[in-house]
Design a protein around this nucleic acid. Structure first.
Ligand SMILES: [Mn+2]
Ligand SMILES: [Mn+2]
Ligand SMILES: [Mn+2]
Ligand SMILES: [Mn+2]
Lengths: 156, 156
DNA sequence: ACTGAATTGTACCCTTGGCTACATTAGTCT
DNA sequence: AGACTAATGTAGCCAAGGGTACAATTCAGT
């Protein structure tokens, strides 16, 4: 009785994942992709607030490497989602929900970077890769990363 | 002289990455995001060819969890990019370039899954997370994953 | 208080990647 | 051969996220 309960089901004849299983996985990846940008904005806004006491649209745009109308449009979406507030010609502020999201996203970002560094990935690659990968790591994967770091530290 | 040459430069006063550095990282993540879908399609087409000897539009759509017009539109884009060919009412075929891409993407996918499994991530989470994360892992990160697996195997 | 520069806002355009609805073709079974 | 079904193609809609060009406002420095 060595069978792993959570083993992925594959079609015996094709050695591919079953169709509905695979469709669900791609669907989850699509969902994650659609929130990735928002997560990055919220994290960045929190960082700017912490560093400069305010988050200006221009700074956000510069940091994101995007033109200011593009940034403004994304910020409008964040407002609609209740993550951010702003009054004309004033800065951008995180709502309660925005701050909570920022905190989670920031912790995840740090864990991801730390993990890659611990594995021996050069710093710049670790930062760049983490910026993309972080949005697709489930709680289970983050937990595994944490265990790995814990083990490293324990074993000096 | 312990300074790491590849250490990320941060603004000393704000403890944030410098603006152009961070903008470049977000830019790279955007680029990766825009090729992620194409990579998944090409990988899937190769898998279907291997399993069934052909790749039909309907099967691709079902596997991707998407309606067939959506799949067809993506396939049209793959044609434009020279990764795929097709004649009306016949199947989809990978070009030389498409097959090469498929091979690289498939190897990367397997490495990613194997790595997560080795870390103790449950199989279904490993598969799902890999589907998203794979597109953002640089060569440096993939190499680190490979080293980790090698060490595991060596140390029994 | 004025003026010029920087910031912010707005209008409009494009591509990607979703969808539904409908038309056409191919394939299968009697 | 004809008819039904499945597959494929096409048209048109939408939202997100990128861009340019230009208008309006704020802010600093004189
Ligand atoms: Mn990110
Ligand atoms: Mn991040
Ligand atoms: Mn994928
Ligand atoms: Mn894949």
């Amino acid at each position: 009785m060595t069978g792993n309960l959570s083993e992925t089901r594959v079609d015996a004849t094709t050695d591919m994942p079953e169709e509905p299983t695979q469709a669900l996985r791609f669907g989850r990846a699509r969902t994650a992709r659609s929130s990735a940008l928002q997560e990055d904005y919220v994290e960045l806004i929190a960082d700017l607030m912490a560093a400069h006491g305010e988050a200006r649209a221009t700074d956000i745009a510069k940091r994101m490497g995007v033109t200011h109308p593009t940034a403004l449009k994304s910020i409008t979406r964040l407002k609609r989602e209740g993550l951010v507030t702003s009054r004309p010609y004033r800065g951008i502020f995180l709502t309660e929900a925005g701050q909570e999201l920022a905190q989670r996203v920031r912790a995840r970002h740090r864990l991801m970077v730390e993990f890659l560094l611990a594995l021996g990935v050069p710093a710049e690659a670790a930062e760049a890769d983490a910026e993309g990968m972080e949005h697709y790591a489930s709680e289970a994967t983050l937990a595994a990363f944490g265990r790995f770091l814990g083990r490293l530290r324990r074993d000096i």
